[in-house]
Design a protein around this nucleic acid. Structure first.
Length: 438
DNA sequence: TGCCTCGTTGCGTAA
DNA sequence: ATTACGCAACGAGGC
């Protein structure tokens, strides 16, 4: 029997909540339901084991007569430790183990090797390394499992009486009623639908330049495929190949780092550096991270976390994040700069924790890497280039419609002053039905 | 994968 | 009528 544990993508342990907000639990649950549905269409199903890996594997190997265990390699220290423990158990039970690289386009270890053992620390350098590598193709669709190998699908067929169904949200202690309606449903089906929708817009794909997309449009100005890449609903290799195909048909197109292809390369870049850098998600003990005496101001951190800083653009971004689980990449830049080097001088690790909880696409390597970038701790060092919490949003939303949507108490403020409402006279503040306190 | 200032330009308006 | 002025839009360069 062949047991498939998608390790990187579907870590689900009831007792081990990590920093996962309700939105992401829901996204995961929807993704699992969709995976189960798709597996059933090829005569299989998903078995969700409600325990932690180190305790459950010994029992599974024995009870299920497992001979082969395959799983996707991961670089996150938590996962590496877990996988090594499972491999040890597999050896005890004489189960053959195969690890595959499939979460990233390139194998981080191979890139490191090509660069003489150390990670390329700039995007350009990284690009030149991977340009000499063969681009792995995505896997073909899985064939139907022959009926002779069909696993037990229904409860009645499962001998030990255990429940292997995808848990409901309430079983995962998620209060569904407290959540907003699903804006980005989890699962491969939705991922592919969304990708196809984006790929149809040939000109948009070819002209894509990340710095020219809007952080504060009312509907996302980018693909929002990141949550699907993170959870393995969408293969980075498939998306990469499909973008390249659009380039072939569309002629002239933008280039990395700003192009759409370039966005996927950024992901590869962070994965590779993260794989080779101990304590990548911390300042201390992290050899690439500038050591900065951040202050420990709980009041500032709480205000930022809850979208209560008093800067409407910053608060709108943070409230969108909490509500919907996604904000634009440049909005992440603005709020991260604001929390750290720009204004509040709070530790980037605190921001990292908040993003980890709230983002549907929270990804260990990308989250840490980008927080170091934005706090000017690594990769980027021009600390005096600061995003203005007032001017930055104005460039793409002069009217302040984004602010009115997510900070509705300011909806009566005129566009000329909505980015800095404290400039309104007290008389006008009363007229606009929102008094600004200091 | 900035912001700010300043200089230039072009347009509308009013004396 | 011609001209002076204000202002917005834009781009370059310094920080």
């Amino acid at each position: 029997m062949h047991v498939f544990f998608p390790s990187n993508s579907y870590q689900f342990y009831l007792h081990f909540r990590l920093r996962v907000g309700s939105n992401r639990w829901r996204f995961l649950q929807q993704s699992l339901l969709d995976l189960d549905k798709n597996l059933r269409s090829i005569n299989s199903r998903l078995y969700v084991i409600r325990s932690d890996p180190t305790n459950s594997f010994a029992k599974i190997f024995k009870d299920w007569d497992v001979v082969l265990l395959t799983f996707e390699s991961d670089i996150e220290p938590y996962s590496v430790k877990r996988d090594n423990e499972v491999i040890k158990i597999a050896k005890q039970y004489k189960v053959q183990v195969e690890q595959e690289i499939s979460h990233t386009i390139f194998n981080p270890e191979l890139v490191l090797q090509k660069n003489g053992g150390s990670p390329p620390m700039t995007y350009q350098k990284f690009q030149s390394i991977v340009s000499s590598l063969k681009t792995p193709s995505p896997v073909d669709n899985l064939p139907k499992i022959p009926s002779s190998c069909k696993p037990a699908l229904d409860k009645s067929e499962i001998k030990d009486g255990s429940c292997y169904d995808v848990p409901s949200l309430s079983e995962m202690s998620v209060d569904e009623d407290a959540l907003e309606p699903t804006k980005f449903p989890g699962g491969e089906t939705e991922a592919l639908r969304r990708m196809e929708m984006c790929l149809k817009r040939t000109k948009w794909i070819c002209d894509f330049e990340k710095p020219n997309t809007s952080p504060n449009s009312l509907e996302p100005s980018t693909t929002v495929l990141s949550p699907y890449l993170k959870f393995g609903c969408l293969s980075s290799r498939l998306f990469y190949q499909r973008i390249k195909n659009v380039y072939k048909s569309g002629g002239k197109h933008s280039q990395p780092p700003v192009s759409l292809e370039g966005q996927l390369i950024w992901r590869e870049f962070y994965y590779t550096v993260a794989a080779a850098t101990p304590n990548f998600d911390k300042m201390e003990g992290n050899r690439i991270c500038t050591q900065i005496p951040w202050s420990n101001n709980k009041k500032f951190l709480d205000a930022w976390t809850n979208g209560q800083t008093g800067f409407p653009f910053i608060d709108a971004c943070m409230r969108q994040l909490r509500k919907e689980g996604w904000i634009h990449h440049l909005a992440r830049h603005a709020v991260a700069c604001f929390l750290t080097r720009g204004d509040l001088w709070c530790h980037w690790e605190e921001g990292q924790k908040v993003f980890e909880e709230l983002l549907l696409d929270a990804d260990w390597a990308l989250n840490a890497g980008n927080w170091m970038w934005l706090s000017a701790s690594a990769f980027f060092h021009q600390y005096y280039r600061v995003y203005s919490p007032i001017a930055f949003g104005k460039k793409t939303d002069k009217e302040g419609l984004f602010i009115k949507k997510y900070v509705p108490e300011l909806r009566n403020y005129p566009s000329g002053i909505i980015y800095e409402p404290w400039k309104a006279s007290l008389e006008n503040q009363k007229k606009y039905k929102c008094i600004i306190c200091r």
